[in-house]
Nucleic acid binder design. Structure first.
Length: 437
DNA sequence: GCGATCAGAT
DNA sequence: CACATCTGATCGC
């Protein structure tokens, strides 16, 4: 697509219309309540949740894209100076509430931007998306696929969320007298919590801001902010660590559950000591058979498989992910048959360029050339170039601005805490309820 | 002083 | 290693 027309999850100047796939913070960089660069298209659920993230946002700028319906907007083509129609459709991304992919069609051809997405074959909801996509792309070739390449590496292989949820349930059931804390973000993994609540017939504690989101999503009698009524709590992921668990265990026996597609144990769970050089990290995936059933044998506290001490005795990692794993990405690409692919996540070495693994599934001739370029870019990425969220027709890269100057003089503590308090005021207080009182 | 934005940590 | 998020430092205004 030509530059200067459409941006997806990218909020720099220069586009005529802007699309948001979902409300996770890493897709909102640059977006603020003072937004005025143009209309912002999003799903209905995202629009409903929008004021929580951006309280003072001018809601008249929001345009709701109904899932499964074609919409159209007339945009000025910067090159020929005339207007051209861009048709677009939102399709359920099965990521977090409100998350969608966008399919664009116009003179430029056909482009699909997945945003973050999960492509499970099992659920009925997934089948709906499949049918929708098939119908929308009937008779056209997909020229460009912008792909969620979070787990674009064959080592990333994990079961369906349904299977992972059963693992979580087994872990909880095998600790009938323990409190349980589950790490979640501000949005996402609701179905896991709903499943636990339904099977165990119990409410689940969440922090106040999260309860507000649950209510907006229509879950009214399942979640609570009263700690006394349940032994199961969903806590912010950033507050979930060994120290928290140890603190809780001085009060009551408590286990922690970390739902994550990441194959490595997060550093927070490894204890303070460094991994010794003669014992390299072990892939936790060795404990995650892809055909997991309800058997609980695959889940053990993390302590055993890594060289960390027994600090992480209480923590279980379960492969519950809202991103597609590698085999799912492969199936997805075989399904949509794109001519070219670009990854939308590109800030680290572990996010492999999709063309490396899937180039052979594309119809482009210059895959190897593009790969070389891409690897070269990656090598220099940390030196001076940041890859941005992809924007059609744009290079996707920009120079780093000013160099940050390190100052010897640190700020006064008063200023620091003020900044934090202001942020909390805006975004809602994080409350973990880990204090023993 | 304030908001924006970055790097770094979890 | 980094899923998304928070924190603190520093920049420009």
């Amino acid at each position: 697509m030509e530059s200067g027309m459409v941006s997806v999850d990218r909020w720099t100047a220069g586009s005529q219309v802007y699309f948001l796939t979902h409300l996770h913070a890493d897709h909102l960089c640059g977006l603020t309540s003072k937004w005025s660069r143009g209309p912002l298209y999003c799903s209905r659920i995202t629009a409903k949740l929008f004021p929580i993230k951006f309280p003072d946002f001018d809601l008249s700028l929001l345009r709701i894209v109904e899932i499964g319906h074609w919409h159209s907007v007339s945009l000025l083509s910067p090159s020929c100076g005339s207007y051209t129609d861009v048709d677009f459709m939102a399709i359920d991304a099965h990521h977090c509430p409100g998350a969608v992919m966008y399919l664009f069609r116009g003179e430029f051809g056909c482009t699909l931007y997945t945003g973050d997405f999960r492509w499970e074959s099992t659920s009925e909801r997934a089948q709906t998306g499949r049918t929708m996509l098939l119908k929308a792309m009937k008779d056209v070739k997909l020229d460009m696929l912008y792909l969620d390449n979070t787990y674009c590496n064959p080592t990333y292989c994990f079961p369906s969320r349904e299977a992972a949820a059963k693992q979580v349930l087994n872990i909880i059931s095998s600790h009938p007298n323990h409190d349980v804390i589950i790490a979640v973000d501000t949005l996402g993994k609701e179905n896991l919590l709903l499943y636990i609540s339904r099977v165990l017939k119990t409410k689940i504690w969440v922090w106040p801001e999260r309860l507000q989101i649950m209510h907006l999503l229509g879950f009214h009698d399942i979640f609570t902010t009263k700690t006394s009524v349940t032994r199961i709590r969903a806590v912010p992921r950033y507050s979930f660590n060994i120290e928290t668990l140890e603190g809780l265990n001085t009060i009551r026996p408590t286990i922690g559950i970390m739902p994550s597609g990441l194959p490595w144990a997060p550093r927070a769970f490894r204890g303070k000591e460094k991994l010794s050089s003669e014992s390299p990290p072990v892939l936790l995936h060795n404990r995650w058979p892809t055909d997991v059933t309800t058997s609980s044998t695959s889940s053990k506290p993390n302590g055993g498989s890594l060289s960390a001490g027994r600090d992480d005795h209480y923590i279980y990692t379960v492969p519950y992910s809202d991103h597609s794993c590698f085999p799912e990405l492969q199936k997805f690409i075989e399904f949509v048959m794109p001519i070219n692919i670009k990854g939308i996540v590109s800030s680290s070495a572990s996010n492999v360029d999709p063309l490396y693994h899937f180039g052979s599934l594309c119809r482009i001739q210059q895959a190897s050339v593009l790969l070389c370029q891409s690897l070269r870019n990656k090598r220099y990425e940390k030196v001076g170039v940041i890859n941005m969220r992809s924007s059609f027709g744009c290079t996707g890269t920009m120079q780093l601005g000013r160099k940050r100057r390190k100052r010897q003089i640190s700020s006064a503590g008063i200023h620091v805490s003020r900044v934090r308090l202001l942020r909390r005021e805006r975004q809602g207080v994080k409350i973990v309820d880990t204090d023993p009182d």
